[in-house]
Design a protein around this nucleic acid. Sequence first.
DNA 1: ATCCTATCCTGGCTGC
DNA 2: TGCAGCCAGGATAGGA
Length: 272
Amino acid sequence: MPELPEVETIVRELHPHLVQRTVVSAHVDWAKTIAEPARDIEQFVARIVGRQITDVTRRAKFIVIHLDSAMYLIVHLRMSGRLLLKPRAEDARHLRVQLGFAGGAALYFYNPRKFGRVWLVGDLDPVLGGLGPEPLSTGLTPDVFVEMMRRRRGMLKPLLLNQRFIAGLGNIYVDESLFRAGLGPRRQVNTLTRTDIVRLHSAIRSTLRQALAHHGTSFDHVFVRPQGERGRQQEGLRVYGRHGLPCVRCGSPIERVVVGGRGTHFCPRCQK
DNA sequence: ATCCTATCCTGGCTGC
DNA sequence: TGCAGCCAGGATAGGA
């Protein structure tokens, strides 16, 4: 599942290949992929052809491809989306959108489960405006995070998955961050001490930084980098997917339960 | 405000 | 081996 580290990896690897490219063709193979302009593929194609890419950036789990004429192509991969620079035969059935560039290069959006979406907009705010802060931003200091948490209640894991509260975490890195912080996924937020919250802040950032250094998690064969390489963070996961295996810290079996409707992995002894 | 469920989808797994 | 049925999972909407 692409989360912040996977999306950031994609952005970094697409950037040098896409900036300064001019779109000369666009094909949409699954119309519902285009969220904006909705139900108007001809309009989408007409607006994007001829545009030159000026930058490729990330906000939360959104990929933002900046175009000239103050337009943006926003991509969200959701569960199973891939952006690849070369077509792959094994993905052919799941090709949803393709962009061709002057000089022959192309960008392919594959999406087996069809949850991913693409927006072509002049204003980022309607799509990205409601998102919470970036977990790795300098502005998100421990003190700011403590203040954010103080105003909340309910279970800890669902709050960390809420993109309006903090943007970019998903199921894998929430479980990993909670393990590093020694906090249970069902812990009530209003029982956390300042020390707990500061430890969680640090755990989230170190979890994401390590995943980023390993180019993301290619655990389930869903995430592949734009040139087909895999990430290595699956080797560094401590609880996610380790249900029944011994905790790396204390040896107790890792448990899997459902919290807020999501599969949740944790060490019942290390996480309180 | 928070929680729960349904929805969108398909590949992959389980059980018979 | 085949097939039906279930489930994961990001995000959001609607109802309790």
